[in-house]
Design a protein around this nucleic acid. Sequence first.
DNA 1: GTGAAAGCGCTAACAC
DNA 2: GTGTTAGCGCTTTCAC
Lengths: 336, 336
Amino acid sequence: MRQKVTLKQLAIELDLSISTVSKSLKNDPEISQATIDRVCKLAKERKYKPNALAVSLKSNKTRSIGVIIPDILNNFFAKVLLGIEKEANKNNYKIITTISNESFEKEKEYLDMLAYNGVDGFILAVSQETQTKGEFEHFNEILKDEIPIVMFDRVADDVYCDKVIVDDKKGAGDAVDKLIQADCENIGVVSSIQKLSVGKERLEGVEKRMKSYDKETKILKLKKNKDYEIQIAEFIKENKFDGIIGLDETAAVSAVNAASILGYKIPKDLMVIGFTNGVLSKHSYPKLTTVSQHAKKIGATAAKILIDKLELRAERYLPQTKVIKTSIVSRGTTKN
Amino acid sequence: MRQKVTLKQLAIELDLSISTVSKSLKNDPEISQATIDRVCKLAKERKYKPNALAVSLKSNKTRSIGVIIPDILNNFFAKVLLGIEKEANKNNYKIITTISNESFEKEKEYLDMLAYNGVDGFILAVSQETQTKGEFEHFNEILKDEIPIVMFDRVADDVYCDKVIVDDKKGAGDAVDKLIQADCENIGVVSSIQKLSVGKERLEGVEKRMKSYDKETKILKLKKNKDYEIQIAEFIKENKFDGIIGLDETAAVSAVNAASILGYKIPKDLMVIGFTNGVLSKHSYPKLTTVSQHAKKIGATAAKILIDKLELRAERYLPQTKVIKTSIVSRGTTKN
DNA sequence: GTGAAAGCGCTAACAC
DNA sequence: GTGTTAGCGCTTTCAC
């Protein structure tokens, strides 16, 4: 612990009472200007800073936000975290970061641990296992204790709290449009996130738009235990696709590489469009066209909503769901 | 704040004093077994948990670690963070994560903020700007206040604290060996991290080993404002390299893509070896051979050292520098 | 205008 | 064995 200068110390040095010092520092009109000036002067000299712990204990507010990320190695989540951190810092909040590693148990444990450690609120994306299980009671427990939660990206519909999501369906539709407009005739879909809510949303979005063009959607659900590129190469060859939509960044990049395996030229023989505008997309060859979800903005928005609520700047208690618009970042894997 | 059940409440319900309850919960031998049992039973029923804030205020320990990461979008740092978080959690510590974004000011500000918020210790990698400036007084200030710091990867030699580093020089030498053994004649180096201590270390390592083979080292320092792949392609073409060492993951992957631009076949016409075994390396085409720094282990080790010190498990106060060994992960961009 | 006192929830030295 | 008390550093009500 740093802090050695306390109110008490200042009080002694100034021959004042602790409460007078405390009030002076707050410019309480009860106190004479002369005293205020004396106190502030010394406080500045001594570099007095109130002990955060004591303030927290007293006020029951810690100015900290508990963050639970399913997978920090996923560039999307790393970006969201960046957004959260920036916005939190701007508002003088700190974030306590935990990583659920897609595990239901971990998520529950961290939720508890953080609540117990007095975070003022939560920002989280639901873990894969939790989504599969469909068990959300642990979130409701927290909400019952009046600790607000903001979910982002992977949300639980059954939990009544603030949410920040992406219009994945529309984004997926836009991806279809993009390929069709570039004269793709035969479009395939590859995904390694079938089990996630966002994976399903995107697939639905693609299917719906494809239908509007009178096309069926063929999808390859990647198996974890086998090389993605090989699986995709086979899929492309069998179906003679000239366009691929990858529902997640890994799948999309693997599709680009699969083309190389097959000796296809991109975008001449095959076009690819992916999701998530992360590092992978920027460093594939050719560079990948993607549906960007604006991860940083998602994080910043989530933080803003939470902090607004904490500071009661927000209107009463009605949870809102904010939708962040996607946009297509055109790069080398598509024509036009 | 969750916690509603307090010692006081239990005491009232059991018609005991607060201190008796407190002691019972600690199995104090002063207290009769009967009382202990009664207390523990009720505590369990009521799901009593001590208020972390109060304990912290009292003990001057928060069981939290301040972490400062220069760039969370860098897969290496994300992995380190994962390692830190896991180890911390195992020991019942939490981490407060901040991101300096390579800025000296931010770093200083966060250091202060975290110290002021009572973290028990720090784990951090020095920001690029700080390294360039060579100003490390802010770290010494913290150490003076007896808050331990563990630096990892990007460390400040002038600061007397624990460090976890990578044997970058040796790793770089190994990379040279690997290429030479695969019959490369003409090896070039590309880097986008010239300014970082690790970038210099790696370069030195390469140069030294090259010299032992009687070879000069040609290096391309990538300019931020121009496409890496183009810069590298020119570099390769001019010098007719048959081997490239990328001193960081981005540079290495860009080298692989540059080969594609030039129409070279990898590894037949050109071999590439990079640093940092991250997602980029796993998703390039062909997949990249890299010198792995075992980022997760670095993080875990740093956390272990810090926690040992905090719990006084470690022998007195002599700061140690732990070196994590690199190893080469062979993939498709090298032969053999 | 200033100060005393209580209290946030906990611990621990010291009574009884 | 159990309880009283003081104190961690701060805020805030209420006296003076």
